[in-house]
Every structure is written in C-alpha cells, then in structure tokens.
C-alpha cells in the first residue's frame, strides 16, 4: 500500500470536517439574518403603532422619522443612536454568544468581514441621517435602501468566495436589490408611517423567510452518505 493510500482515510475525514465547518458557519450567518429580519418586523410595527396612535416614535426605527420634531435625529443624535443600539443588541448577541446544534459560535474571516461591513454601513447610514438634519425626509429611505443593497451585494461576494455556492450569492443579491427597490418605492409614498411599516415589514419578512428557506435548502448539515 502506498503512503498516500495509507493516508487516504485521514484526508477523507478532514474533507468531511471542512464540509461540516462550511455548513456550520453558513448556518450561523442565516441565524443572524433571520434574527435581523424579526428585529426589523417588530421595530417596524412598534414604530408604526406609536406614530399612528401616540404621535411620538420611541424607536426612531428606520428613517429617523418621528412625530415629535423635538425628538428628531438632528436634535437628539445621541438618543437616536443609542435607541438604535437597543435593536442591535439581539443581533450582536447572536453573533457573539449564539449556541445551537453546532456549538459556540466561531466566526471565520468572511463572516467577521461581513459583520464589520454591516456595522460600518449602519453607522454611515445614521451619520448621513443626522447630517441631513431633516425630519421625515423622503431621501432617507433611499439612503437606507442603497446601503442595505451595497451590504448584501458585498456579503454575497464574500460568502461566494468562502462557500463557492452560487445559490447563496444569487439569493443575497436578490435581497439587496429588493431593499433598494423598497427604498425607492417608500420614498415616493406620501405617508411616512405607512412607509416605515412597509419598508420594515416587507424587508423583515424577506430576511427572515430567506434565512429559514436557505437553511432548509442549502444550509443543512451533510447526511451520512
């Protein structure tokens, strides 16, 4: 038996480990995508209900829109950003401490880059909103849609390099383009409350369901064969 034949079982088992690791990392990404979607849906509804019935938006959720001009992002930038951090906490917790069938999270290079990119785009969006200094501006949904689109397209590229999975790449680009279209559509809708609800709810539903569907189609652990 040649040397390489003697090592073949070891090479086979290491390939299984590598395959598992790719699936595990991808599933963690999907988990975060799904949580982000749920956060968007909940935030959108809270924002809508308060704007509609109370007149003050305690969430500042998406466009920096608020029923009370004294609570506008340009008047209260620290409050605006700190309220947003409350939304980020579940996502950051999922990124850092998530446990599941695969164990404690262990981010590889691509996912770290995606995390840093997402955080950078989030801060950029809010700096733009604060700098614009406008309440209920119609330009803000376009800013959001564009940045979400950029984030998903870059993520798809990074994930494609990591997993070589064209389904994942296409799926993420589609989500990004939908976000951009939603941003543009929302910008031409008259009612800000409705615009917030639409953007958050539709994008949230897309994120959550795409996360769940991707898990069941491409993200499941390899079978025994």
């Amino acid at each position: 038996m040649s040397s390489i034949e003697r090592l073949q079982p070891h090479i086979d088992i290491l390939e299984r480990v590598e395959k598992y690791q790719h699936k595990a990392e991808f599933n963690r990404f999907l988990l975060i995508l799904t949580i982000a979607g749920f956060v968007a849906i909940i935030g959108g509804w809270i924002s809508y209900i308060f704007n509609r019935f109370v007149g003050v938006d305690p969430t500042f959720f998406i466009f920096g829109a608020t029923g009370d001009p004294n609570l506008a992002p340009d008047k209260e930038p620290i409050l605006f950003l700190s309220v947003w951090l409350v939304y980020l906490v579940p996502i950051l917790s999922a990124m850092t401490f998530s446990t599941g069938s695969t164990g404690i999270i262990n981010w590889n290079k691509a996912y770290k880059r995606i995390g840093i990119l997402a955080f950078f785009l989030f801060l950029l969006a809010h700096v733009i909103i604060v700098l614009m200094g406008v309440t209920n501006s119609k330009l803000i949904p376009i800013v959001w849609g564009t940045l979400v689109c950029v984030g998903f397209i870059v993520s798809s590229r990074l994930l494609f390099l990591e997993t070589n999975n064209s389904k994942v790449r296409t799926g993420l680009i589609v989500i990004g383009v939908i976000a951009l279209i939603l941003g543009l559509l929302v910008a031409i809708i008259v009612s800000v409350e409705l615009a917030q609800l639409l953007f958050c709810s539709i994008l949230g539903v897309i994120l959550s369901f795409s996360g769940i569907i991707s898990y069941y189609t491409v993200g499941r652990l390899p079978s025994k064969n």
Binding site: R16, V17, N106, P222
Partner: peptide, 20 residues
C-alpha cells in the same frame, strides 16, 4: 479533535452526523 478544535464544544449527535 479537528472538529472540537474549530468548535470548542459540540453535541455527540452533531459529531456523529458531521463524520458519518
């Protein structure tokens, strides 16, 4: 050992599935 090196803790059933 390689799986546990990459994921500090794993369930028995997860290791079983991953290695077949």
């Amino acid at each position: 050992l390689m799986l546990l090196h990459l994921n500090p803790v794993l369930a028995f059933s997860t290791i079983q599935k991953a290695l077949g």
